[in-house]
Design a protein around this nucleic acid. Sequence first.
DNA 1: AATATTATTGTAATGATATAACGTTTGAAG
DNA 2: CTTCAAACGTTATATCATTACAATAATATT
Lengths: 143, 143
Amino acid sequence: MGDETKFDVNLTKNQALVMNALKNADAPLSAYTLLDELRAEGFRAPLQVYRALDKLVEFGMVHRLESLNAFVACSDPRCNDHKTTAFMICDTCGQVNEISDPKLTNQLQNLAQNSDFSVKKSTIELSGSCQDCADYKTNDVTR
Amino acid sequence: MGDETKFDVNLTKNQALVMNALKNADAPLSAYTLLDELRAEGFRAPLQVYRALDKLVEFGMVHRLESLNAFVACSDPRCNDHKTTAFMICDTCGQVNEISDPKLTNQLQNLAQNSDFSVKKSTIELSGSCQDCADYKTNDVTR
DNA sequence: AATATTATTGTAATGATATAACGTTTGAAG
DNA sequence: CTTCAAACGTTATATCATTACAATAATATT
C-alpha cells in the first residue's frame, strides 16, 4: 500500500473519497465533476462534495483555484509552513504547478505594509502555457 | 463636465452605463448587482451586463476579481502599461486597493521562467483588513 | 453500559453566477 | 443605399454554491 494512508488517517469516508479523486486527477476538478466521479461510491448531492472540500481545504490538503472554480490536491507536503502559494495553470493541458517562494511572500508582505493593509489570505494564480504545450504548438503537429 | 467623458468616448450606451455604475461604487459589484442597479435604465437580462463587462475588461477599464466574482473600475489610468496588478481587498468594508509594482512583476516573471512557464494572465488578490477597519475593531466601538 | 454531546451525513430545495442560441437593430464602410 | 460586422434584446439553460432540516455515527461523560 505504500504511502497511500499517510494523509488519510483522520479523514472521514467522504473526505477520503474526495481526496483520492483529487490525488488521482492530473488537473483541477470542479465540485460537480467530483460529484459525478463519486456517484459510483454513493455520492448523491453537491453538498457531500462541498462539505468534504471545505474540510480538506481547512486541513491544507487541498487548494481552491479561484480563477477556475476548481480544486486541486496540495502537492507540497510542507504547504502549511508557507504563507503564500502561487499556482501556474496551463490553459492548454490544465496542469497546475504549485510554488512557494519566500521572496514573493516578502514582496507581497512589503506591498501590503506600505498600503497599511493586513493580509489574511492570498490568491496568486498565473495562467498561460507550460513548456510542453508551448513546444507542441511550435512544432505545429498536424495529424 | 470635467473629465467625465474622457473614457466614455468609444463606449456604447450599455458599456457606458455599466462603467458609470462601477465608477460610482465604492466596492466591487457583482454582475447581478449591476443588473439590478441598471434596471431603471432599461436593463432586463444578465447578458446585457456580461457583454458590457467583457468589453470593458478587454479595454482594460474594468478588472474582474476572481475571488469575489465581482468587478471593479480600474483606478490606474496607465493600467495597460503594467503587466501585473495586485488587489488588496478589505473583508470588512469591501474597499479595493489596486497596486502595480515592477518588482512584483519581475519576481513573478522569474518564478515562471524557472518553471518553464509562459504567463498570459495573472491573478493576484490579497484579502484581509485595511487600516481603517483594523482601527475600528481595535477601538472596540460598542454603541 | 447508558447517556449526553458533537461532528458528520443524507436529501431536497433554492440561490447565485454565467453562457448558449436565436433573431433583430444599429452603425460604419464601400 | 447596400453590405457587413458589431452590438443588442430575449429566452432558456448551464454551472457553481448554500440553506435548512432531519437522521446517523463517533466521542466523551457519568
